[in-house]
Amino acid sequence: MNKSELIEQISNRSGLPLASSRKALEAVVETISAALASGDRVQLVGFGTFKVTARAAREGRNPQTGAVINIPATKTPSFTAGAELKKNVNN
């Protein structure tokens, strides 16, 4: 499902016009992104939790030359599925 199809489904299920459904989806995505950027976590009970995890700096190898390279520390977004989502996926 792509973004347009998701907006269409939101519109069908909520009864909102497509334009309002698009604005609602974009507002949710922007709010989650802003919360993660500030270091907060977003927990939607039953659906899951969005959070930022830290990756430590480490050494890697160039697969072509075998040379050792330094990979810097980074932060990455992650998602952990909630119980209801897991249940729905497995049924």
Rank of each mutant, 00 (worst) to 15 (best):
M1L: 13
N2Y: 12
N2S: 03
L6D: 00
I7R: 11
I7N: 08
E8F: 10
Q9H: 06
Q9K: 14
I10L: 15
S11F: 07
S11I: 04
N12A: 15
N12G: 09
R13Q: 14
G15K: 08
G15Y: 04
G15T: 03
P17I: 14
P17E: 11
P17H: 10
L18T: 13
L18D: 06
A19T: 12
S20M: 13
S20Y: 13
S21V: 11
S21H: 12
R22Y: 05
L25V: 14
E26R: 06
A27C: 10
A27Q: 12
V28K: 11
V29I: 09
T31G: 12
I32C: 08
S33K: 15
S33Y: 06
S33H: 11
L36V: 07
G39N: 04
V42Y: 01
Q43A: 10
Q43W: 01
L44Y: 07
V45P: 04
G46Q: 07
G46E: 07
F47A: 03
G48H: 11
G48K: 10
F50W: 14
K51V: 01
K51I: 03
V52R: 13
A54Y: 00
A54E: 15
A56Y: 00
A56P: 04
A56H: 04
A57M: 01
A57T: 01
A57F: 00
R58N: 03
R58Q: 02
R58Y: 03
G60F: 11
N62C: 06
N62F: 10
N62R: 07
Q64G: 08
G66T: 05
G66A: 05
A67C: 04
N70E: 12
I71C: 01
I71T: 00
P72G: 01
P72I: 02
P72H: 07
T76E: 05
T76V: 11
S78N: 09
S78R: 14
F79Q: 08
A81G: 06
G82N: 11
G82V: 07
G82F: 08
E84G: 00
E84V: 12
E84W: 02
E84Q: 14
L85K: 04
K86D: 05
K86A: 04
N88V: 12
N88S: 14
V89T: 08
